[in-house]
Nucleic acid binder design. Structure first.
Lengths: 340, 340
DNA sequence: CGTGTTTTGATTGACGTACATCAAAACATC
DNA sequence: GATGTTTTGATGTACGTCAATCAAAACACG
């Protein structure tokens, strides 16, 4: 029951270790018939190449850089500390993880961060994208240099990025609508939407998904013009309080970006009977869920996302396949009863 | 920027490689002051022991065995194929994964499977527990032999198992109730519960959680006596159809175990207006979600659970810490709009 | 058959750590 | 200062693969 090594395969196939190695790393200079004999022996003996030994021999190490928003929302400070946490874990596998925090919503800052790092950016980059042509171009230049690129949290389609690591934000918006539709029992009423930023694709997509479902399935509910909160609790509270005061028929609320603390403060003050779905799991949303001020919170798991981005970049660098099941990023729905 | 090796640490601390090695693996025979000098050098140089090299040198390999139900529910056949899938992945890390499928709900079968394997059971066991003293005893015997044990999917508390890998089933039941409470708009009505087996702790716990919330928060809803479906679609359909016919006031339904196909057939036939929450994501529940026959499905991700169990057993075997964030098993809530 | 080319074998030295051994040095004790 | 003990150094082998070398063998082609 001992492990099968390349040496065993060589003996079984009647070739030398060198030849097995050539086949294993598909180097040229091996007859097709020999390749076949060797691969046959491999799966007959159930040979699995030992990752540890292979990595060691290759002496390969990896260097990935995260480019994330320096924004002060609960979500992004979570993301940043998760990257720090992942760094220690990744180091064990010879993966160095760098991080650059850039001013939020500033495409040029992202580009500068990339260019500024030069070659030290490493083998792969995970970046929180902002919709902009300069970012698209920067991604293309990275790819041209052989650097692997994934977008992270917020996508930028029609770019050269190889993958998006994050949730399906349209689906998140749809789920929010689907929940509110079922939560709201009033025969008719208004629904308020508190948005974050119009330049963040993830926010735009959530809004899209939300409106899709509202329009298609909730003729009895009227979606009010959205509130732009700019992710700042103070701004959100002020605008939302005003809106609630002016619209007594509001029966539902979806907050799809940052500044959730402002949402909570406003609805507590307003004391209307409305169903609320928000994003971000912070101490404030936790408390509000428990108190019953909020009905559900839709979140993504930053810790999973960071680990996933690293694994995906490593797979790209190694040229191996991505384990799709493991890398699926879920939209998590928290209610009072399944808070972690 | 080259990697820091144990040799570098030795030079920095002014000792030999052998001494660093002694410190690294806390072997005896090193003066305290020297230990201090070495560890100081380690974190000054930011030394991280190379897992690949360490594993290779140790020549250690792992052997874990899953003991799972041979039941024909969609969920368990999923679990079994995920174990097969994980086997290939684990092999790369010198982990051999075995599986024994035992007749469902039979404690003695579990014990026999354990005893029957003898020493070949390996370094760790993940088992789908059934409430029973003989199982508890078997776990204790395994632990006494130094075999690590985690329960999987279904827990057995007050046993010697070192950890439970699975969702918080009480919470799942609570979430189901919390959703139904919000979904149901009728001022009053009945709620039906379709249970699986009374001997499976996970089913019992879900039911507990469900009733907790119903009793505490939904005085307007009456929970009807539960239906025991024995996880068989035919049985479920028959009993549920009968119940629906006899109780026209049913406005909500929670199906917490297998045989969901029977639930779907019954509610389609009954054509009542009721909100439905079930478990298991199969082709049937998918279709029913899309058709609107079901409102939400609460599931656990078998693929994640299998990988988690393997990682946890490995951590126990190595005596290293478990990464709690990574090993948290989520209760996933699927609606029509976030189906994967 | 000789020539050139392709394929294979044999061998060697990494990679970074684990682990064991023996000798040398440092230290403690009387 | 002789003795015994603890601590350290020096060294070597092993793990399984990668990568490179050079020589030998097999093959193709005219």
């Amino acid at each position: 029951m001992a492990r099968v090594t390349a040496q065993d395969v060589a003996e079984a196939a009647g070739v030398s270790l060198a030849t097995v190695d050539r086949v294993l790393n598909n180097r040229k200079g091996v007859k097709d018939s020999t390749i076949e004999r060797v691969t046959e022996a491999m799966d007959r003996l159930n040979f699995v190449r030992d990752q540890a030994a292979a990595n060691l021999a290759r002496g390969r190490s990896y260097r990935f850089t995260f480019i994330v928003s320096a924004g002060e929302t609960a979500f992004f400070s979570d993301i940043r500390s998760e990257i720090d946490a992942a760094r220690a874990l990744a180091a064990k596998d010879r993966i160095e993880v760098g991080m650059v925090a850039v001013p939020p919503l500033d495409p040029q800052a992202i580009v500068d961060a990339i260019e500024g790092r030069g070659e030290t950016i490493g083998d792969g980059v995970a970046l929180v994208a902002v919709e902009s042509q300069v970012v698209r171009d920067a991604i293309k230049r990275l790819r041209a240099k052989g650097v692997h690129v994934v977008t992270f949290i917020s996508d930028i389609p029609n770019s050269a990025r190889e993958r998006f690591v994050g949730i399906d934000n349209v689906a998140a918006g749809r789920v929010a609508a689907s929940l509110l539709k079922r939560f709201v029992c009033a025969p008719a009423g208004d629904v308020a939407v508190v948005a974050g930023s119009g330049t963040l694709r993830d926010h735009v997509e959530r809004r899209m998904g939300f409106e899709q479902v509202m329009r298609a399935e909730c003729p009895h509910l009227t979606v009010l013009p959205w509130i732009e909160g700019e992710e700042m609790a103070g701004v959100v509270e002020e605008k939302l309080s005003k809106l609630l005061a002016e619209n007594p028929e509001v029966v539902g609320l979806y907050s799809l970006g940052g500044g959730t603390r402002g949402v909570i403060d406003a609805i507590r003050a307003a004391d209307q009977d409305l169903r609320v779905v928000t994003t971000e799991l912070s101490e404030h949303t936790r408390a509000a869920l428990i108190a019953g001020d909020i009905d559900a919170v839709l979140v993504q798991d930053p810790s999973h996302e960071v680990r996933s981005a690293i694994r995906v970049l490593k797979a790209f660098t190694d040229g191996t396949a991505v384990n799709e099941k493991q890398e699926r990023i879920r939209i998590e729905i928290f209610m009072r009863d399944n808070l972690p």
